[in-house]
């Protein structure tokens, strides 16, 4: 059996990131943290893409997760980090379970467009809901971790290490999932649905499962983002946000569950620096980066590693 190098990377990564947390300058810790949140959303998209589907509306679940977390704090004063993230994940997964019955019937551009329509509906709803701050959204604060009250100065590291730990956990989880029978079936869906149906398998059910998983991860990413950044707004469900996720996903490549995290880190870094040094051309920088990747690295950033080490 081939050695599983990916799993061997995750553990040192976890230790490294946790240890680096207190040492990193504030901006760098924040950058890592935000990248991991994005990476988690994109990890969900990777599952969908392995199934052959690209959602242009993943912002729906990202935003739902964030608002679930935010609402807990804002209205119920349940400002507990793991609870907020858990609720964000569950709410998104639950909504996806419902919508999944519908979306599992769609493919290609129609899947992309219908998901986009749903996320735009959420965006429109939030913008018109003054209780939730309309266009401005609202601030989210964090006060405890699993019931233990947090001191003001420890909040940052606690959310950081929670994000790091959860991210690594889901990374490993998704990695194992993709290597399981169910995960292989996802790829079979992408390759040939007809054949799978002729093997007695319900393609719709497979898509539904992967859709829910992807949404739960997006919700988790959104909730983690809410506690990390401390502010949420309806823009999270706007099409440009979903566009960014697709962007990162293509930038990353689908070769490994580590790819989304690499991709999102590169994306966030490019964006932060471009924004810092040339605020009027940061989008241009991102666009050109993307074009270069599509033209010269069609398998995404991850394919650089594949080429070198020859592992799949």
């Amino acid at each position: 059996m081939k050695r599983d190098t990916t799993l061997l990377i995750y553990l040192p990564l976890l230790v490294l990131l946790l240890a680096a947390g207190p040492l990193l300058p504030k901006w760098a810790g924040f950058l890592v943290n935000v990248s991991l949140c994005f990476g988690t959303v994109v990890l969900g998209m990777l599952i969908l893409m392995r199934t052959g589907l690209v959602s242009f509306g993943q912002g729906l679940y990202y935003c739902l997760g964030a608002y679930a977390a935010g609402t807990l704090d804002h209205f119920f004063k349940l400002s507990d980090v793991p609870l907020m993230i858990l609720c964000g994940t569950l709410l998104s997964g639950l909504v996806a379970f419902g919508l999944g019955f519908l979306l599992a019937r769609y493919r290609d551009i129609f899947f992309a467009m219908l998901s986009m329509a749903f996320s735009m509906i959420l965006n429109g709803l939030l913008v018109k809901t003054s209780e939730l701050g309309s266009t401005d959204g609202f601030n989210v604060s964090v006060h405890s971790f699993a019931g233990i009250a947090l001191a003001e100065q420890s909040v940052r590291y606690v959310t950081y290490s929670t994000t790091v730990t959860l991210t690594v956990l889901v990374g490993v989880g998704v990695h194992l999932y993709l290597r399981s029978h169910l995960g292989r079936m996802a790829e079979a869906v992408r390759d040939n649905e007809l054949r799978l149906e002729y093997m007695g398998t319900s393609v719709k059910r497979l898509i539904h499962i992967n859709y829910v998983l992807a949404a739960a991860l997006a919700g988790m990413g959104g909730a983690m983002m809410a506690v990390t950044v401390g502010h949420i707004d309806p823009e999270m469900a706007y099409w440009t946000t979903s566009g960014e996720f697709v962007f990162i996903a293509i930038l990353s490549g689908t070769g490994s569950t580590l790819a989304p995290f690499l991709g999102s880190t590169v994306f966030e870094t490019v964006r932060s620096f471009a924004y810092e040094y040339s605020p009027n051309t940061w989008q241009m920088t991102l666009g050109i980066t993307m074009l270069l990747v599509i033209l010269f690295l069609p398998g995404g950033l991850w394919s650089m590693f594949n080429r070198q080490s020859g592992t799949a």
Partner: peptide
């Protein structure tokens, strides 16, 4: 019945144009 159900009854088929999982 649809193909999936027919298959599960024990009726299988091959295809004039092979239907494979192309990337695998």
């Amino acid at each position: 019945l649809i193909p999936r159900q027919v298959t599960n009854l024990g009726i299988c088929r091959s295809f004039q144009i092979p239907q494979l999982f192309g990337t695998m």
